[in-house]
Amino acid sequence: MKLTVTHTLTCPLASPSRAVEHVLLTALSTPQQRVERWSIEMPGFADAATFRDGFGNKAYLVSQTKPGDTLRVTVSGTVETIDRAGVLGRLEYDPPPAMFRRPTRQTKPDAALIDGIDPSGGRIAALHEIMGRLHEGRAAMHQSQSAGVQEQASGSAPADLAHAFIGAARALDIPARYVTGYLLDEDGAASFHAWGEAFDEGLGWIGFDALLNVCPTERHIRLAAGLDAIGTMPVRMVPASTEVPAETIEIVEG
């Protein structure tokens, strides 16, 4: 499926004399996606340094002198996605998977989530079970909540679910990582998205999207992976942005 993304972020700044950003907004070609064209526009990008970070992502270090009171980032690209039932496999720059057993503050395991699950009976089945439980839990929560709270909760839902999934997998000694990307849902709505990937000795890395209860499809575009959401923030900056950036995301087929 050929998808064309346009994503803009507008970050408010307190007019510092200098701003520095670590940008993780680059889609790379993988067995699940072939990147035809990808570009980032923001002040200072022409002079940015680019490198592979410790997690295999392509990162940019961008800086501006007297950037004013907002910073605008525009990402656009076209990607041919391939549905491989969520199997990413192994990427050239992947660090050893064992590293992704390291617990972080955002990925504390929830004992109830892995209660009774025994990965020795099959890792992939266990991971599907965790994803299913998370999805059901969320559906149940959805029903019991008022409309107002629902909306609030859904704002961070992909991140929370991905963290819960990763925490559970790591608690079972399965390497798992946090993945950011874009999603074009069945209704045609586009969003910035997050899901988990867990490692299997045979298949390599496999994606699990607990929000949708599926392994990533051709409607997912993968950007970056890391230990948790903090490590994979699309734009991390100093001075830290005082507010959440305003975003617009558009994804069209073709």
Partner: peptide, 9 residues
């Protein structure tokens, strides 16, 4: 700010 990335680069 940015020192580590400059190192990585």
């Amino acid at each position: 700010p940015g020192l580590f990335d400059a190192y990585r680069a």
